[in-house]
Amino acid sequence: MSLSGGYPGMAGPPAQPKKRPTWVVGVVTIVSFVLLLWLIELFDALTGHQLDNNGIRPLETDGLTGILTAPLLHANWEHLIANTGPALVLGFLVTLAGLSRFLYATAIIWIVGGLGTWLIGNVGAPAYNGVVIETNHIGASGLIFGWLAFLIVFGFFTRNIWEIVIGVVVLFIYGSILLGVLPGTFGVSWQGHLCGALAGLLAAYLLSGPERKTRALRRPVRPPQLNT
């Protein structure tokens, strides 16, 4: 007689596939994304960097398509190498909030940050004979600034202790690069950095909605006070 229950000789219920740990999914996701950036830059280098013309060109209708392509493009290998480390670290940390939240946060930062760059990308741009020189914004740094801002504030919205700790550690290690949202170095898109960071704050607020709603429901309702 079978000791596992059911009838003798019958197979038990099919085993459920083991779920991969969150950190494994995060590593695979962000490494795949960064690998894609390197493959695109390799193709771009081999074809004379013609892809770089597809960045965000502010206030030009044909520059709107750059919102979708700009984070995938880099001016040269040095530009890509500078973005690779922060992208791996910060992108991975965002995946720890859950893959769906990572995807939604990235989409918000990508689109909203890109649209903001399209709107203000010419602010502070050099001019020649009173005419602003056309700018072309490319690179994943706007996305990186968005992930950074997301990580710093997300825990304070969710009130999750580990997410707060991650935010504090990230602020301590990477906080100085937030100065990149200010006008400064020529050729660096501070507009893209600023809009990416603001989009990251928006993503953190929107995606912390379930925790904020739960916290609001737990808040005791005070009875009305009647004066006599």
Score class of each variant (00 low, 15 high):
61 T>F: 14
40 I>M: 01
70 A>R: 07
122 N>A: 14
97 A>W: 04
117 T>W: 04
9 G>D: 09
212 R>I: 14
167 G>N: 06
51 L>E: 01
37 L>A: 01
49 H>F: 01
182 L>W: 10
136 N>K: 09
33 F>N: 12
116 G>Q: 04
197 A>H: 03
215 R>I: 11
103 L>S: 13
148 L>Q: 00
85 G>P: 06
13 P>H: 11
65 T>D: 00
117 T>L: 07
183 P>K: 15
159 R>M: 10
201 L>F: 13
140 A>I: 13
90 L>Q: 11
33 F>K: 00
184 G>K: 08
64 L>Q: 03
38 W>A: 13
122 N>E: 13
17 P>G: 11
206 L>T: 10
10 M>W: 02
145 F>S: 06
178 L>K: 08
9 G>L: 05
116 G>F: 00
170 V>A: 05
152 I>L: 12
100 S>T: 14
207 L>M: 02
142 G>T: 00
103 L>G: 13
163 E>Y: 07
13 P>T: 13
134 E>W: 02
205 Y>K: 12
60 E>M: 02
15 A>N: 04
28 V>I: 15
175 G>Y: 10
74 H>W: 03
13 P>Q: 11
141 S>H: 14
123 V>N: 06
65 T>A: 09
54 N>F: 07
207 L>D: 01
56 I>Q: 04
226 L>R: 06
142 G>E: 03
83 N>T: 08
171 L>T: 09
87 A>W: 08
26 G>Y: 02
138 I>M: 06
94 V>P: 01
47 T>I: 05
